[in-house]
Amino acid sequence: MFSLDLLLNAIVAGILIGGFYAAVSLGISVSFGLLDIVNIAHPAFVILGSYTAYAMNRFFGFDPLLTGLLFTPVFYALGVVVYRLYYLGFERKGEESLRGLVFFFGVLFIVEVALLLAYGVDYRMIEARYVGQSFHIGVVGIAFRLLLPCLVGLMVTVALHLFLSKTFYGRAIKAVSQDSQALRLMGVDPVKIKRIAFALSIATASLAGALLILIGPVEPSIGREYIGRVFAIVVLGGMGSISGTLAASVILGVVESLTATFSGPSWAPAVSFGILLVVLAVRPAGLFGR
């Protein structure tokens, strides 16, 4: 059963999928960790991104990665609108915690139902030349449908990290949940800062969605499979830490891949919850939490 080839392939596949997990998780790390916004609808925006890539591919023959990039401004705008509703309805009144959760649950539900009505329950996939192709390095096979999402995930991670650490907006985003009134004393409008950061998180979700449909077929409720996984990553990485999110994504990807290879795929989902529980018990601030 055990062989070195199998082990190496499992590790590489895990690293590749980990890069993709980072793309899915970064937005949640930002909204939960830096903005105190419990956006549990994040996976729904990912799926919306997948279906956008699907539709553009089906009707216009667009490459999913191209669609993902082209539509980030559209999803950014959608994020602005969603944050505005959330702000006016809840945050401004100081009712963000429980009612905010209900709001995002509602958003999740609406997106899912809308996609069900529009596309039905069938799995959808895209067509692109490179999807079925792969190459080999020694005994290790590398599939383009995993490599490209990983590379894009890494690029998004690096870009977000630079944005947060090198720009005025970025530093303000990192400060906003610590003391928003003190931020106003620096001449910063905290509501604007949260709007920008939230909209960015939604834009990354849509891009992650384009990656998701590259990896495999999607159906409207597939986002649920990601909720547990994404939370495990965000908690393990230390809420709000971008490099931590990337590290945690790769760790989870590799552990899942090893589990699936050596114990069977049905065990893989249990991995994320196992990790989540252990981290919460041993180090609640996560690996990289400040």
Binding site: F168, R171, A172, K174, A175, Q178, D179, Q181, A182, L183, L185, M186, G187, V188, R290
Partner: peptide, 23 residues
């Protein structure tokens, strides 16, 4: 310079200073 200092405790000294220069 507010009462109770109101720094951003989880940001570095340098990040706090740079936020001061936002305007």
């Amino acid at each position: 310079v507010p009462e109770g200092r109101r720094l951003f405790p989880k940001l570095t000294v340098e990040e706090n200073l740079l936020l001061g220069a936002y305007r």
